[in-house]
Structures are given as structure tokens and as C-alpha cells.
Design a protein around this nucleic acid. Structure first.
Ligand SMILES: [Mn+2]
Ligand SMILES: [Mn+2]
Ligand SMILES: [Mn+2]
Ligand SMILES: [Mn+2]
Lengths: 129, 129
DNA sequence: TAAAAAGTATAGCTATGGCTACATTATAAT
DNA sequence: ATTATAATGTAGCCATAGCTATACTTTTTA
């Protein structure tokens, strides 16, 4: 059923975005802090804090109180998959003719709802254009 | 900000799907009942019931207790917009080369995250292919 | 080194959407 | 007409993600 799949996607969606952001921060700044994540997402720090707690007990990240965030292996893996999807969808939308801003905005939502089959088609399209 | 837009989309997503389903049921069966919606979505009837209550106090639908559901003008308008988006995205995915099942599943999620600009590009692509 | 600022954590609230269990009403069958 | 079934409604639970306000810790600045 289509709707069930969408609901399942929504369950992991926020997790995927968090992990992608954390990976990016670790890459660029060397560390990922709650304040940066909150700013990135445009949400209150308290909200980011709560989600980070969930990500920790779900085994995606590790952190000590008042310290910065690290990805577990499980976290790294999901971050990597998410990043790949993000790039494919973003590139696809740009090749479709959209400006960077629109492509980025739409990709951020679409990336969580594309099956592997669709990703393959997008990659094919990306190579041809 | 991209993420804010995605969050906003998620707020109306469920509403859009419900209204689209109700419109379809009204069209095909002549009436929309909670049990049909629940079956369509693959959720418990109690869950559908609760959401229908929300849709009513938010002014999208009208109903009497134990009776079937009708769309208000506001509801009809959103249903119509949602349906249009759905068709554009679904057609696009099919033209991209995907089978009906995959196209339908992915469209169900993607439809809520495409900007008007992206829809335009998809329509253009649909006409060309 | 002491004070100010920044970052983090926690509490308590709201809204949404899942679920099961159970009660009530409406409809269909006997 | 009664009874059985189907549909609807309600209650009470969980999880998630928002928010503000407030407390605590760490870092920076004076
Ligand atoms: Mn979504
Ligand atoms: Mn995203
Ligand atoms: Mn992303
Ligand atoms: Mn949908």
C-alpha cells in the first residue's frame, strides 16, 4: 500500500535530516553542536536537544552532556545513504531546469520519498543531461 | 529555509490525502464513509474518525454523527489542487520510465513536496515525452 | 579570576497521528 | 420485530516534534 510506505518514510525522515546535518558539520567544522543543528533546521534549541536524545537512545549518535555529537557506525551508514539520495535528487531537479534554491528546497522533502527504482531513473537522467 | 518548508508541507500532507480520498469516494460511490477512508489508508477506523473530526473543526468537511462525509468549499478546493498535483507527479514518474506501482507509491509522498515551479517543469516534461 | 555570554538541559505545555478496547448506533438478515 | 453485523464514536494509551520558560554548565571576555 502506497500510504503505508509514505507513513514509514515519515518515521525516518527527521532522523535522516539530522544525521546528514551532523555529518556535514563534522566534515566542515570538525564538530557538531546542538546550537548549529537548531540553527540549520530553524527550530528551537530545546527541540533539537530532545531529538538528539532520541537519536542517542536509538543508537545513531553518541555524546556526553554539554559536549558535541558523534555518529555511531549505524549513524554514519544512514547519513551516507541520505547524503547520496540528497545529491541525486538535487542534481536531478537542477537538470530538470530548476534554480538552485527551488531545487534545494524541493529536494529536502522529496529525498525521503523516492524509491531505489526512482533514484536509478534519476541517475540515468542526470547522466544523459 | 528549506527545512521549514518541508515541515510546513508535513502539516498539510495528511489533510490533502484525506480530502483527495473523500473526493474520489464521492465521485465513485456517491458517498464517503469513515470505514472506506480507513481501508484506503490502511489505518484503524478510530484513527480515521479522529482525523475526520479535526478536518471538520478545521472547516474542510461536514458531517452528522453516524452519517457520511461531505466536502465544504474549502475542502473541495484543496482536494482539487491536491488531485492535480497527484496526477502531474504520477504522470511524470511514469514518463520517467517507472512502473505504475512504483510511480503510484512514490507520487503519494512526493506530491506534497513539489513547488509550483517544479510542477511546471514536470508538466513540460510530460508534454514532451 | 570574576562576570557575562553562550550553549545545553529539563520541565511542562500543545498538536498530530498511530493503536486497542469498548460502547453506541445504524443497517442487514433471519 | 429481533437479532446479528457493520459502522461509528469515545476513552485512554504511546511516540514524535514543535514551543517557551527556566536552570545549569561551559566558554569567553573583561
Ligand atoms: Mn514527507
Ligand atoms: Mn530532507
Ligand atoms: Mn537532505
Ligand atoms: Mn500523498
Amino acid at each position: 500500500m502506497s500510504f503505508k510506505k509514505v507513513r514509514d518514510a515519515h518515521k525516518t525522515e527527521n532522523t535522516e535530516d539530522y544525521l546528514e546535518i551532523i555529518a556535514d558539520l563534522l566534515n566542515s567544522k570538525g564538530e557538531a553542536r546542538i546550537v548549529d543543528i537548531a540553527n540549520h533546521l530553524g527550530i528551537a534549541q530545546a527541540t533539537a536537544n530532545k531529538t538528539i536524545r532520541r537519536l542517542q537512545y536509538q543508537g545513531y549518535i553518541k555524546k556526553e552532556p554539554y559536549r558535541s555529537i558523534f555518529l555511531t557506525l549505524k549513524g554514519q551508514e544512514l547519513a551516507s545513504i541520505s547524503k547520496k539520495k540528497h545529491i541525486i535528487v538535487l542534481t536531478f531537479l537542477k537538470k530538470l531546469g530548476l534554480d538552485s534554491k527551488t531545487a534545494e528546497a524541493d529536494a529536502e522533502g522529496i529525498e525521503h520519498h523516492v524509491s531505489d527504482k526512482t533514484l536509478k531513473k534519476m541517475e540515468k537522467f542526470n547522466k544523459k543531461n
